[in-house]
Design a protein around this nucleic acid. Structure first.
Lengths: 346, 346
DNA sequence: ATGCATATTGACAGCGCTGTCATACGTCAA
DNA sequence: TTGACGTATGACAGCGCTGTCAATATGCAT
């Protein structure tokens, strides 16, 4: 550790509530109140306490606080991946909203494994969290029971459902995917295929939306789905497109599980000498920033990921603040953004 | 909260060490030891304790533990951005390495603001963290003093320096950028420009490396740098290239601050009818996955971000485990990956 | 048998804070 | 004047765990 050279010198004793209390000639409990419920302490005392706090550099010990109050300042967040930029955006919204409050975000990473999710829920609950935010609605039965018995606000995010554990902020992946597929059909593509990787529950619902759209026009989905459990990547998008075109040369459009795949498909199409848009329609999902900047620009379904994080955090904070106003379920919807990659005339 | 319907029923009392102790007929301290230092407890007792723990579903209370031991299980991580995929990769390595240990990662997001970084350091220190990992070496003076006085292992990451606070895991941005620029010159480009956005301290060092390379061959950097403080994006990469080409039509290569800019530059070049590689050389930085998959593929400098997170976490864990073996400074280096975007003959 | 090191267990206090209940002191209507 | 009431403050215990020191048992050389 940094100061291991001066081992003899012990680290300075921490400044406690008692020190502040002594400084202003009040009791510790009064100082504690001045910090947490200022309105309960008289004007003059409160000011002297603030001064002493600043002066001594007092910082509350979260562990002691948690132990005494049986409530920690931790808002636990459980997501399946830290690298996936979709979750990165959600996190960004979360951190921005929780930053500046007395609460702290603590992240749990399930790596798409339900048993790890369950373990993380247990661990978080053992910390008596202020709130819990979990991605998805496909928890195991016992995870769900744990969440239901939690005595803190719980927000599920990313998806829509009629039976949330507590609160829910998300959108319908199925409807979004259906809209994207209908867009391909509207634009005159006659043989669309679903390209998917990783295939978590959300991806499965998108696939379902794709099927919905084909069903609605009486089109068979036979041979129009190519999915893999491999993690998604740009490279994989290209590989899937190549593989599918080899088997089904008639394919004139692909709806991709996510934008990485779509981008990869676009590169692969260009590499194969196809003109994206005219020869093959490509639609992604999420509308990452790169989709608009790409050449040609790539159609995608915009999702409001950052706002999802913000809203989820706000729902928790509102609950903690006693304002239980908002709705239990928030549908953030989605928005199709048509671009050159699905423009046959382009 | 989930169970607010059954308000009358109080949440089940938590299982404590005392419960386990009672169950096996031992004292709490012995149970505590069986959990933390199993070798100090006799075989038989230890097994009965494990059984009781599993049976009762005992989980230690981290707050009580932290309060009593004056040491929390938190490894604090301070980074400037959650969305930047560079840090996402580092984080992924961190989480993977810390997951499975009794420690917890807690993330602080400075949003590139030194005063927030300082505040975060203070807050983390007030938690008596098990360890601290901070991005960069450009802390304010008082931040640095705080870190130096911390009585936990501290690892600075992302960069190299001769005077780390404690430990350091990173690589030389300057050397990496110089190598990239030299590659452009080697490949026969005669008028390279540095394109940069955000320009944090690391980017400044990359710019310095660019200058080093030009200096070494007696080339002026005059008019060969276009930077902005705007946050980086793919779109911005294209905009910067367009802007620069309008002013300096002779430019035949760009070294971009990061891969997003490089990708955007590539798109913009194609849009302008240039053949990437032949008409304009493009080199990025970090070697994100998309660079290899792009069409044409884009040259970049590979950095070992995930490994940086893993190594930093390992250094902290080793320290905590008492093994103070490894070196204080780890240079993960970098690797230039030449691709089509800097191939004039392609 | 004696003394001493080692292994195993426990008693006790206290980490720094907050929940709860008690106290002191006005204020004001009756 | 009295007492009910609201406001401001404090005393006290205890949250669930661990550091420290003490106690006891065991083994072994003397």
């Amino acid at each position: 550790m940094p100061n291991s050279e001066n081992n003899g010198r012990k680290s300075p004793r921490r400044v406690t509530l008692a020190d502040v209390a002594r400084e202003v000639g009040a009791s510790t409990i009064t100082v504690s109140r001045a910090l947490r419920r200022p309105e309960m302490v008289s004007e003059g005392l409160r000011q002297r306490i603030s001064a002493a706090v600043a002066d001594l550099g007092y910082l509350p010990d979260p562990a002691a606080r948690a132990l005494a109050s049986r409530r920690s300042d931790v808002i636990g967040v459980i997501i399946p991946s830290v690298t996936n930029s979709v979750f990165a955006d959600v996190l960004s919204g979360l951190y921005d909203t929780v930053g500046g409050t007395p609460y702290n975000v603590q992240l749990g990473n399930t790596r798409y494994r339900p048993e790890i999710e369950e373990q993380l829920i247990r661990i978080f609950l053992s910390q008596r969290p202020a709130g819990l935010i979990v991605a998805g609605i496909d928890q195991t039965d016992s995870s769900r029971r744990l969440l239901e018995s939690a005595d803190c606000p719980v927000v599920q995010i990313m998806e829509l459902a009629s039976d949330p554990v507590d609160m829910l902020v998300g959108f319908s992946h199925r409807a979004a995917a259906r809209a994207a597929t209908e867009h391909l059909l509207d634009r005159g593509y006659t043989a669309p295929t679903f390209l998917g990787a990783r295939m978590d529950p959300r991806s499965e619902r998108r696939l379902q939306g794709f099927r919905d759209a084909l069903d609605a026009v009486g089109m068979s989905t036979e041979g129009r789905e190519l999915t893999t459990t491999e993690p998604s990547s740009v490279h994989l998008g290209g590989a899937l497109l190549d593989r599918h075109r080899a088997r089904a040369p008639g394919t004139d459009a692909v709806f991709c599980n996510n934008d990485d795949l779509a981008l990869g498909a676009a590169f692969a199409a260009q590499r194969a000498g196809l003109k994206v848009g005219r020869d093959i329609g490509i639609c992604g999902f999420n509308d990452l920033e790169v989709m608009a900047a790409a050449h040609p620009s790539i159609t995608s379904v915009r999702t409001f990921r950052r706002q999802m994080g913000e809203t989820a955090a706000l729902r928790v904070l509102d609950h903690l603040g006693g304002k239980e106003t908002g709705p239990r379920v928030v549908d953030l919807s989605y928005k199709l953004i048509p671009r050159s990659s699905t423009d046959r005339g382009a």
